[in-house]
Amino acid sequence: MRTLMLTAMVLILAGCASNVVTDYNSATVFGDYSRWAFAGSEQDDAVTTLDDARVRNAVERELGRKAMKKVAEADADVLVGWQIVPEERLEQVGVGLGFGFGRGNFGWGVSAPPPVREITEGKLVVRMVDRQTDEVVWQASSRRYLNENQSPETRRKLIDEVVSDMFSQYPPGLN
């Protein structure tokens, strides 16, 4: 029974773990921000990737829920920008093999580790910049990753969930 209770507590605590990490300038008065715009992009505006469009839609929806008005860049209090930061990690793609022999407390064994491959994944980072001071005042980064094997629908759902989690922690101090 004790093991069952401990397992339940671990699962509950794991469910409470956040999928995003936020940081902000504690001297900022976030109540002063009511108008926002997307930060100018270094890309040609005619070339918008599919993930860019998904992130834009999710950010517009979430800031609309915060009663912030989207305006032209020149009229905005804050500029919102994002990037998908590539990160590499190793992934096991099979099982290791091994064999051994011996008796009692003595024996010999040989094993080979499982094969691994390097995977590049993308971590979404969203920043809000005060237009007057040109300083980042709020930032959120995802602990969940986009990868090349995800279907378009999975990518859209993941971006929607991550951006929603990010803006659930904006403005800071109201959680």
Rank of each mutant, 00 (worst) to 15 (best):
T3A: 12
M5G: 06
M5S: 11
M5I: 14
L6K: 11
M9R: 12
A17Y: 04
V20K: 05
T22L: 09
S26G: 04
S26M: 05
F30S: 09
S34C: 05
R35Y: 04
W36Y: 13
A37D: 09
F38N: 07
A39Q: 13
Q43I: 03
D44W: 05
V47Y: 11
T49S: 15
D51C: 06
D51E: 15
A53H: 03
R54F: 15
R56H: 13
A58T: 02
E60D: 10
R61L: 13
E62M: 10
L63P: 04
G64K: 13
R65K: 15
M68G: 03
K69V: 08
A72C: 02
E73K: 13
D75T: 07
D77N: 15
L79I: 05
W82Q: 07
Q83C: 01
I84A: 03
V85I: 08
V85H: 01
P86R: 03
E88F: 05
E88R: 08
E88K: 10
R89N: 11
R89L: 11
E91G: 02
E91N: 03
Q92D: 07
F101D: 00
R103D: 01
N105M: 08
N105C: 04
V110H: 07
A112I: 11
A112F: 13
A112Y: 04
P115N: 09
R117A: 07
T120I: 12
E121Y: 06
G122D: 05
V126G: 07
R127D: 14
M128H: 06
R131I: 05
Q132F: 13
T133I: 06
E135M: 05
V136H: 03
V136I: 11
V137T: 03
Q139V: 07
R144K: 10
Y145W: 04
L146Y: 01
Q150D: 02
P152C: 08
E153L: 13
T154C: 00
E161S: 10
V162G: 01
D165V: 01
M166T: 00
M166G: 01
S168H: 01
Q169Y: 06
L174Y: 04
N175P: 05
